[in-house]
Every structure is written in C-alpha cells, then in structure tokens.
Design a protein around this nucleic acid. Structure first.
Length: 419
DNA sequence: CCTCTCTCGGTTATCCACGT
DNA sequence: ACGTGGATAACCGAGAGAGG
C-alpha cells in the first residue's frame, strides 16, 4: 500500500491548538486499547502473531521465523477486542509543575470495573481523573476528528475523509481500525473447513506497519483482500473502500519486497526458500533523484558534540540489525561514511570507530568472515611450519570491502561544493 | 504535526567493601 | 557506626530511523 509514485500529503500541523488536548486524552485511551487488543489477539489466536508492528525488528523476527520454517524453494514469498467486564476508562492526568510552564500534562488510561458516579474527580492538586464510558469516548473521538481544521492561506478547511494526520492518536487510529478487520478475518478460523484453515495459516507470516502490509509466501492475499469477496467459504479482510493496491517497484530486483526500511530478497539456499534482508532507502527511488536531501548533522553545527559522535555508531547498529546480506551491509556503511565525510567528519575517526565496532561484534556475518579466515593461508615460518595468524583478520573482510566501496562512491560522485 | 523503536552517553541513585 | 570511593543500575534526552 505504498504511494506510487511518491506523492505529497498535507499534515494538520500545529504545536498547540484547542484540539491538541482532546487528542492527547484520546491517545492515552488508544494506547490502552492497543495493549488490550494485543492481549486479546494472543489469547484468541495462539498460533498467529499479531500483524501490526511498530518497528522493523518485528519484520526481522518474521523473516527469521520464515527462514526457520524452511519453505521449499519454489515458494513465492512475494471490533474484535473487549476488556473483560470493564465499565469505563479512567484517564489520569498529571499536570506539570507550575514552574515548568512549557511542559505538557501527561495522560495515562486504565480500565475501571465500576462506573463512577461523577465523571471528573480531582485527587490532588496536580492529579485529575476523567471517566469515559464507551459512548463518552465515541463523543470525544468524533469531536476530535470533526474539529480539526487546516488553513491554506486565507481558506480554512476541514478534512472530511480520513483522519487528520498530525493529531497525536493518528497512528493508533490507523492501527486499531485495520486490526479490527484482521481480527474478524481470523475469527473464521475455528469454524472453517480444513482446507480453509490451511489457507488461513498461510497468513501466519504477515506484518503490517500502519497501512503498509506484507504477507510472505501467501498466494491467497490477493483473493482475500476485501471482505465483500469470498474464497473457500472465507470472507476477505479489509473493506473495499480502502482500495489496497499491490506495490510495483520496477527499479528493484524482481521478486524483492520493500517493507519499512528493509528490502526482503528471496533466495534459494540448498533447495530451501531463504530470505535475506538488505537496506531499502526510499530516497533511492527514481522520483527522489533530483531532490536534495540532507542526512546527519554537520560536524561544525552547533548541536552538542556527543550527538555527533554517536551518529556513526547508531547507524552501524541500525544496519547490523536489519541487514543480513554482508555485501549490502558494507555498501550501506560506505554510504553512511561518505555522507559523514561530506559533512566534515574525519575519515580517520570514522574508520577507527568502525574497526572497534566490528571487533565488538565478532558474530556479525560470522559465516562469511569465517570462510574468509579459512581461505586466508596461515603464514609459514622459515622451516615451513605453520604460524598462527597475525592480528584479528575477522574484522578485515567487512572493513576492507567498505573502504573499497567508499573509494568507488567517491569516484562516481564528486563531493558537492561546500558553501 | 504526531506516534513508535533502538542505541548511546551523561547524570543520578544505589549498593557494597573498606577504612577510620 | 559512619563516611568514602568505586562499581553498577536506572533513567533521561539526544541522535538515528520508520510511518501517517
């Protein structure tokens, strides 16, 4: 469900406005509902992981689960929740201290079993509790959605379709809205026929980040996408008004699947379908080619020194977490290095910290590095006896390759002239 | 504009061994 | 019994990233 081609979208941007407070209260309630929903999902469907995720780590876990399952190489990997007997939701608000005026109050929501007599209660000077029944919350929520206005020059417009982006509960709304359909879809499992259950099990390797959905090795997704269609006696997932479109990425290798910042590449490893992961940077799309995008704070900017020091380390960890293809890892590290070099960072410092980080993770790309170590002939003494290898060569393979990539990238694209 | 995750590094809190 | 120094844990805020 990507925007193809990448398109502009407008946001309801305002640091503080009257609807912000309503939004914050709604966020607290939605956050509670999300955790409850997740518990309910795990209880109802012990064999299915929840689809929604909030980080690429969940996708990496799914890839590992897929690889561990060992599909044959012919595979193509390309309101349901209720809170027990709760009667209301209590939103507890803690106001900031009077002397810190620019801080915002914090809201936390909990379920309460008994409906209180009053809807508002002040416990201490800074602590208030507001109680919401389901109807109250519906009223609050619709007032939020209907009273967000966006100004374009002199015109004040109200968004009628969809959720105004920029209000704080927007991600939760998207998540829970879609999750409720997925819940109803999987609720068919116990009463389905054996064949239909097998079909539903193909949805096991599914992950959704807000509106971005990926389902590995699942030929049934296309015919079960909309809930007004039937397949094997099962109804589909989402309402047809959502218009879920499959992505096409002509600039990517065939069969690969971008999801969040990861590119899943199916390979054949000894007759078994195996997914390797590479980095997927949206900015590499042809549509962004002529857009100047800056990454990373320049060395001579005014932000604190510690923040600059940890940029490379942070990128190293991010890449080692999501990339399982060593060559791509070296290439992406080289790109980070190049971007930092352009921003005034010292090459020597970058290489030193890269070496020490590689030393700290000897298990990273263990097999590739091990093969390299075995191939490298051990030095022999004057009598021909074998001597132990010098230094830790295990760190050298990714390092050398990265340095080579940096050299190639510098040749291909001369550094921009600094102002 | 907002939500989330992950890691780092600095600060603060806590614990424990040791000496007075 | 009490103070002190060092080690460790917890917390916070910053950066990076993702998305709407």
């Amino acid at each position: 469900m990507h925007k193809q081609p990448p398109s502009m979208r407008y946001l309801a941007c305002s640091h503080r406005c009257p609807s912000s407070d309503i939004g914050d209260v709604c966020t607290a309630i939605f956050r509670l509902l999300c955790t409850t929903y997740e518990q309910a999902w795990r209880q109802t469907f012990p064999n299915f992981e929840p689809w929604f995720c909030l980080s690429s780590a969940a996708v990496i876990n799914m890839v590992h689960a897929y690889n561990a399952r060992g599909w044959p190489a012919t595979s193509d990997p390309a309101s349901g929740y209720h809170a027990g007997n709760a009667a209301a939701i209590c939103v507890r608000t803690i106001d900031p201290l009077p002397d810190s005026a620019n801080q915002q109050p914090t809201h936390t929501a909990t379920f309460v079993k008994r409906r209180p007599a009053v809807k508002y209660r002040q416990h201490q000077e800074r602590i208030h509790c507001r109680y919401f029944t389901a109807d109250d919350f519906t009223t609050l929520f619709s007032s939020l959605v209907q009273s967000t206005f966006i100004q374009f020059g002199p015109a004040l417009v109200r968004q009628l379709k969809g959720i105004p982006m920029g209000i704080s509960p927007a991600p939760f709304i998207a998540n829970l809205y879609l999750a409720s359909f997925e819940f109803r879809f999987l609720q068919q499992y116990p009463s389905a026929t054996a064949a239909a259950q097998a079909t539903l099990r193909r949805f096991r390797h599914s992950k959704r980040y807000l509106d971005d959905l990926a389902s590995l090795n699942n030929p049934y997704l296309a015919c079960l996408l909309y809930n007004d269609r039937q397949h094997q006696g099962l109804h589909g997932i989402y309402p047809s008004c959502l218009r879920v479109t499959t992505q096409s990425h002509p600039h990517l290798p065939a069969g690969s699947l971008p999801f969040l910042d990861i590119l899943l590449v199916p390979t054949n490893r000894h007759g078994v379908s195996h997914i390797t992961t590479r980095l997927y940077d949206k900015r590499d799309q042809p549509a962004f080619q002529n857009v100047r995008l800056s990454r990373f704070v320049p060395l001579h900017s005014n932000v604190n020194e510690a923040a600059k020091r940890k940029i490379f380390t942070g990128q190293f960890h991010r890449l080692r977490r999501i990339i399982s293809d060593m060559d791509n890892f070296c290439y992406e590290i080289a790109r980070v290095m190049l971007a930092l070099l352009h921003n005034g960072y010292q090459r020597h410092h970058l290489e030193t910290s890269y070496r020490s980080l590689l030393r700290a993770f000897p298990h990273l790309f263990y097999f590739e590095r091990r093969a390299y170590n075995l191939r490298t002939p051990r030095p022999r003494g004057p009598d021909g006896e074998r001597r132990p290898r010098a230094a830790p060569p295990a760190t050298d393979l990714p390092f050398d390759r990265t340095v080579r990539y940096v050299g190639q990238l510098v040749e291909r694209r001369p550094p921009p002239r600094s102002a």
